[in-house]
Design a protein around this nucleic acid. Structure first.
Lengths: 340, 340
DNA sequence: TCGGTTTACGAAATCGGTTTCGTTTCGAGT
DNA sequence: ACTCGAAACGAAACCGATTTCGTAAACCGA
């Protein structure tokens, strides 16, 4: 018997397909302990597995969650994927993933491809440029944004508490005796996340009456390094503190500093976002604002599940959930780069 | 009209559902240019999208490729995922991903979950311990192994040309004047990849008449670092060359060396597998055996497609493809850590 | 013992495409 | 003009589950 169907199981167990279906989905309409056992035995013996396609067709539910990631090279993304995978599996869902490579066209294409595939919901770590399409998608199926918001803001978002993390890093640098602080960003990055961190940085400075500014590195080119060199030279010996706005910028910073020697120039303190494994090692350890990726992933799936349940439960457009912004606290890893 | 069905399109275009289906799958049974245009117009106007579940049910093809990755934190894996995503998308397929986290139990669970979901084929980067289950799966649907082989070897495998890469690194270190070479490995890693590299290393040494050995770091514990320290001390000043067998071991190595200072001890040369972004920066640049992840991914999907086509085309068990081993050449990135 | 309600389960419709098979139409060859 | 084969298309079966609706049995209090 190559492939068994539910009716074969039903026949063997002496019940109807409907009853087997009820067993498979352990439905409220309870069955005798005896029939349950009989069905279980047959399934066990035959190794029967229901065909997902048939199930999907009738129930219009796939137990699939679509995930669109902008940049998988970013450890934040890969950690997130692992977390999402685990959280989804815990709910019996699988992940369909698409990598946009930070290309808006690919992102848009992934969006329609995943929706066409029939995913129950969508997790989007957008690279920007598709705000309307994403908002439209959110109108047709459950969508939760990951880390990066869209313009009109009518979509659920899960993100780190960036303002607190910025404050934490500023604390570190101030405690290390810095008189002046710079936040390093990248020219091409105009994401809401970057903006939020930059704003928080400015707020923190003014709140404490510290001097400082946001410095843009021009995408790894000589310009950026030159500007950075200048910044450092201008303030060398004057207790300058640097914050890399994300892991990528930190990499650029490291490359630039490498030209000056393997250890930090005297009086220079640095800190960064995103906890890469190498942060333990570089400069004897770099103080890091670490995001709680596992919890973020869990919240994303949790929220998505809520929406999916609402969609499949309620009849009309009755109970539309209001869009929600969920902030997950991260924490500061204190390391040698901000010791006194 | 909430959701259109194929029969609605057919009605609007004045043809039968069968014809619309033929149009959607542009079947050999050609149709008049006129009907084709009429159908196209209706679909364009209504924005009709066929339901994947229905299609899957009847055709028992999902255009889904299952991917099981052992360790997504490894940049090799995330690069691979990006490549697979692109190659699959180019063939109109989506990816279902599962992350085993190097846990054999999770891997086994992912295996059944993806198969139950009805994927057309499976890409497995196994963490080991499921060789029989994987071989069994390969008997039921197309499977291509990624990087890591299974015991009995009856399954397709795509991997880097590890022997050549090892030879390349030995070349580098020899050219840098090393008199003695050590390959650093991790105790817990008994993968075929590690073994292959270790064997190639031994072969290269004897071929050139160089002294050297394989040193096992005990999983990041003090033992490993101690043993490493001893190794280095024993040979310091004697032109020792170190090869980290993979990125993780290189990280451990870096941590250990960090205790000795930010630059390499005099006369010590190092090289590693796996090109992380940080390899440019650490020790002024670390010579690296880089794998061609994009090509590997492309080959994997290519091979999987071949198998999928065979399965859906041939009637019986007629044309079984023989298992194939595909080696993709990588290349050596020469950097400062192996300069004379 | 009897109406009424719950519980356990079966028959059959249904989801929305694809595929098989048959019919009609069209064009070419003689 | 007639036959024949291929091309274009339609009718209906089909994929394998879920779900609705209905019914018989079991239960239950009065």
């Amino acid at each position: 018997m190559a492939q068994m169907r539910i009716k074969d199981i039903a026949a063997e167990a002496g019940v109807s397909p409907a009853t087997v279906s009820r067993y498979l989905n352990n439905r409220p309409g309870q069955m005798t302990e005896e029939t349950r056992a009989r069905i279980a035995a047959v399934i066990e013996r035959t190794g029967y597995r229901p065909r997902a396609a048939a199930r999907n067709l009738r129930s219009s539910r796939t137990n699939l969650i679509g995930v669109i990631l902008a940049d998988i090279a970013n450890p934040f993304s890969s950690a997130m994927l692992e977390g999402l995978s685990a959280s989804a599996a815990a709910r019996g869902c699988s992940l369909m993933t698409a990598i946009s490579g930070s290309d808006p066209a690919k992102e848009a294409e992934s969006l329609t491809r995943l929706i066409d595939a029939g995913v129950d919901g969508l997790v989007v770590n957008t690279c920007g440029g598709n705000d309307e399409a994403i908002a439209a998608a959110a109108g047709r199926l459950p969508v939760v944004l990951l880390d990066r918001d869209v313009a009109d803001g009518g979509v659920d978002l899960v993100t780190s508490n960036n303002r607190e993390l910025v404050a934490g890093l500023v604390d570190e640098l101030a405690a290390a005796g810095c008189e002046r602080l710079c936040m390093l960003t990248e020219a091409s990055d105009d994401s809401p996340v970057r903006r939020e961190r930059a704003e928080a940085f400015a707020d923190e400075l003014s709140r404490r009456g510290l001097a400082g500014e946001v410095v843009t590195l021009a995408d790894g080119g000589a310009t950026g390094v030159g500007r950075l060199d200048k910044t450092i030279r201008d303030y060398a010996g004057k207790r300058l503190g640097l914050i890399a706005v994300n892991g990528l910028v930190f990499l650029r910073l490291t490359e630039a500093l490498a030209q000056l020697g393997p250890s930090l120039p005297a009086g220079l303190k640095i800190a960064t976002f995103d906890d890469y494994p190498w942060n333990h090692v570089l400069f004897g350890g770099v103080t890091t604002a670490a995001q709680d990726t596992l919890t973020i992933a869990e919240r994303v799936v949790e929220r998505l599940s809520e929406r999916i349940d609402v969609v499949t439960t309620t009849v009309g457009e009755a109970a539309k959930l209001a869009p929600k912004r969920i902030e997950v606290p991260g924490h500061i890893e204190h390391r040698a780069s901000t010791s006194r």
